[in-house]
Every structure is written in C-alpha cells, then in structure tokens.
Simulated scan of single mutants.
Amino acid sequence: MSKFSKGAVATGIVAVLVVGGFFAFTTNVKTGNAGLVINLNGGLEDKVLGQGLKPVAPWKKVVEYPISTETVYIDEEHGSAPFPTTTNEGKQVPVDARYSYHMDVKRLPDIYAKFKGVSNTVIENGWIKTELQKTVRSVTSQYTVFELNGAKIAEINGKVLEQLTADLAKDGIVLEDFSIGAIHPDAKTQESIQANVDAQLALQKLEMEKKQKEIEAEKARIEAKGKADAATIEAQGTADANKLLEKSITPQLIQLKELDVQMEIAKNQNLPRILMGGSGDTGSAILNIPSDFTK
C-alpha cells in the first residue's frame, strides 16, 4: 500500500473518531423542550439544558420536558375516548375535553423526582388526566345536565380551570387553558335536553312577540298623543283667535259698519227699505231689501 493510501485511511479513521466523539459527547435538546442531566454515577444534576446541541458526557443521559405550550385533546378524533362526569341529578355523561399546559422550567427537578423520570406523555396520560377528571366531576356535580350542555358551560369551564390550575401548579405543571368539548348523553337524556331546548326556544319566541306588541302599543300611544296634542293646539289657537276678534269689536267699529250700510243704500234707491235702529247718535238707517225677499 502506498504512503498516500495509508495517509487517506488514517485521515478517514481520524474523521470517524472525531464525528463519533462529537455525537458521543453531545445531545440535541428539541425545540420547545428543556433537558435535565442525569449522571449515571451520581444521579440528578442541578443543570438544566436549553434547546439545541449541548455537550454531554457519555456516562450521562438527558431527560427532556416541554416548557413551551402543549395542547392535549381528549376525544375520539384524537384517539382518546371521552371520560364520564357526573351532574347534580346523578347522571353519568361522557364528555370531551381540551387543555393546554407547559412545565415550569424552574421546577423540572421536582417534576423528575415526583414522576420518577417518566416522559411528559406518560404524565399526561396518567397523573394529569386523573387530576383533570377528578376536578371536572367535582365541578359538574353542582350543575344540571342542561347547564352542562351549554347554559352554564362557560362558568363550569372557568371553575375547572381555576381549581385545576391550583392543583397542578403544586407539582410544577402550568395549566394555560381548559374547556369541556362535546357531551355524549344517552338517548333518553338527549331527548330531555332537546325537549328543554325546544321549550326555551318557544319561550324566547313568546318573549319576542310580547316585546314586539309592547313596541307597537307604545308606537300607537305616541301617535295618539301626537294627534291629541295637535288637536289641543288647534283648539287653543281657535280660542285665542276668537278672543282677539271679540276684543277687536268696539262701538266705533259697529258705527263704522252702519255707515258702510247707509252708503250702500244711498247708491241703490230702487231697493225696498226697512228702518234700522241707530247706535248712539247716528239715528236710524234705511236698509234696501232685494225684491225677492218681499214677495
């Protein structure tokens, strides 16, 4: 073998050793996770590794836990059967659920110690699921199946979130969100729910009709009041006008009208005449009467 060939082989061996050594002394912590270092000779170390490539000796191992948000679905669509909960009537009703959480990076050593180093998936399917179901049953037992079906579901979710958040936080699990999804009652309970929904819809319809009639009645009252007010204003105007007219009829105006009549008589001497009583010192007047009225 030539010196060149021997050199190439040696270089290759060195490269393999370097690459192998690199991977033997490093670990890649996945994005969104943090890693705990376990020394096989001395147990859990205090150091917590962030994401990315980190140097780790071959006699140590790394256990990863999620410190970014993990969302878990409990429903058949995601391969997990609904779990039964209880209402205050004593009914057992299967429900779906969804929650989001992450692990407190500062509490990772406590989490490792409590759960004996198992993965977060095992913790989800075991301890968290048990705590969740226990809390949901505790809260829903205070409500009817109709309220669980929707009437007070927001209130129920809020209570579960508050109580479960406090319980999980004791062990380093940070619950971010929780909600009950669909409920799966038996056929008889479903019929009762539907009957209740129908009754509520009928009641809402009656209330809407009542409000509509009240609106129409109020509109008619306003229109009637407007007409009455208009008639009152018109009558008041007529009365005021009559008062003004009455005040305007004076003895002097009457005398002036008598003079107008006398002037008309003087212009037409052929009309039949009657005597009129004078007013004051004006004396009598003679009024021409058309011949048609004297026949």
Rank of each mutant, 00 (worst) to 15 (best):
D229H: 01
I289W: 05
E155S: 07
T11S: 09
T69Q: 08
E218P: 00
A151Q: 15
E45Q: 13
G50P: 04
M208A: 15
I173D: 12
Q236A: 15
Q212T: 05
I265E: 12
K3Q: 08
T294H: 07
L275K: 14
R107G: 07
E131C: 07
Q190K: 12
L164Q: 03
K54W: 02
V62P: 01
T135F: 06
L253A: 05
V9K: 08
L256C: 02
A230T: 11
N120K: 07
Q212Y: 08
G283F: 08
Q212R: 13
S284V: 05
Y65K: 06
A285F: 04
G237K: 05
S119K: 10
N41R: 05
N268T: 10
E64C: 04
S68E: 15
L40M: 14
K170L: 11
N270Y: 06
S68L: 13
L275T: 14
P272T: 03
T85S: 07
V37Q: 02
E216D: 14
M276W: 04
L53Y: 09
F22I: 13
L53Q: 01
L148H: 00
T71Y: 09
I173L: 12
V63S: 08
T238V: 11
E155P: 06
Q212W: 10
E76A: 10
H78R: 13
D260Q: 11
Q255S: 12
K134E: 09
N157G: 06
N28W: 02
K60C: 03
G126L: 03
Q142L: 06
A230I: 08
A154N: 08
K47G: 04
N120A: 13
K210M: 12
L40E: 13
M103N: 02
V160W: 00
E223M: 00
T69V: 08
K170H: 03
K211N: 05
A97W: 02
I286H: 03
A195W: 04
V29A: 01
Q190H: 09
A239T: 06
G172W: 02
K30E: 15
G50S: 02
V63N: 08
S119T: 13
A230E: 11
Q236N: 14
A187H: 03
L244K: 15
N242L: 13
Y112W: 08
V145E: 06
D96Q: 01
N157L: 07
I111L: 14
G237S: 12
I38Q: 09
N125I: 01
V16R: 06
S5N: 01
E45W: 03
P82N: 10
K91V: 05
E218Q: 09
K211Q: 11
L203A: 15
V14E: 04
L259F: 01
A154V: 14
W127G: 02
P272L: 06
Y65E: 06
P109F: 10
Y73T: 03
Q262N: 13
S100T: 15
V56P: 01
I222F: 08
E70D: 10
L206I: 04
G79P: 14
N120C: 04
H184C: 11
W127Y: 14
V29T: 10
W59E: 14
F178A: 06
I128M: 15
Q262V: 13
V118C: 02
Q200P: 03
S138R: 11
K60E: 13
V29L: 01
G277V: 14
Q142E: 10
P272H: 11
Q163Y: 01
K188E: 09
K30C: 00
E64L: 00
D186M: 05
A34L: 08
